Amino acid sequence: MIFASIPTVLPEETLAELQKEVQENLNQLKPNVLMETIKDWLPELVAFGINLLIALFILFVGSRIIKLIYRMMNRSFVKMDMETSLKKFLLSVLKAFLYCLLGFIILGQIGINSASILAVFGSASIAIGLAVQGSLANFAGGVLILLMKPFRAGDYIISKDGEGTVQTIGLVYTVLTTIDNRQVVIPNGTLSNSALTNVTAMEKRRVDIVIGIGYDSDLKKAKGIMERVIREQEGILKEEPVEVFVSEMAQGAVMLGGRGWAATGDFWKARCGIMEQVKTAFDEAGIEIPYNRMEVQVKERHS
Results as ranks from 00 to 15, higher is better:
171 L>A: 02
226 M>G: 08
176 L>F: 04
142 G>Y: 01
240 E>A: 12
229 V>F: 05
219 L>W: 00
123 S>W: 11
124 A>V: 15
199 V>W: 01
190 T>F: 02
130 L>K: 12
191 L>I: 03
128 I>M: 13
185 V>A: 02
239 E>I: 09
248 E>W: 02
148 M>V: 14
252 G>K: 14
230 I>E: 10
163 E>I: 01
214 G>R: 05
233 Q>A: 10
194 S>W: 04
190 T>S: 11
150 P>K: 07
202 M>A: 11
153 A>G: 11
132 V>T: 15
162 G>W: 09
219 L>K: 06
117 I>S: 11
189 G>M: 00
138 N>T: 07
235 G>M: 07
243 E>K: 15
189 G>F: 00
126 I>R: 03
203 E>I: 01
236 I>P: 04
178 T>I: 00
126 I>M: 13
217 S>N: 00
222 A>P: 01
148 M>I: 14
203 E>R: 02
155 D>W: 03
226 M>H: 08
214 G>A: 13
141 G>L: 08
186 I>P: 03
218 D>C: 06
129 G>Y: 10
240 E>W: 07
225 I>S: 02
128 I>L: 15
228 R>M: 12
208 D>R: 10
116 S>E: 15
232 E>Q: 15
125 S>D: 07
235 G>Y: 08
234 E>N: 09
178 T>C: 05
131 A>W: 05
167 Q>A: 06
246 V>R: 07
126 I>Q: 08
191 L>R: 05
205 R>S: 11
206 R>G: 06
165 T>V: 10
183 Q>H: 01
164 G>E: 05
116 S>W: 15
121 F>C: 07
250 A>M: 05
222 A>C: 04
167 Q>L: 13
206 R>N: 10
114 S>H: 11
181 N>R: 07
220 K>A: 15
209 I>H: 02
245 F>K: 10
130 L>I: 15
157 I>L: 11
129 G>R: 06
242 V>R: 11
253 A>H: 14
222 A>Y: 03
203 E>D: 11
135 S>R: 13
124 A>I: 14
239 E>C: 04
194 S>K: 12
136 L>K: 06
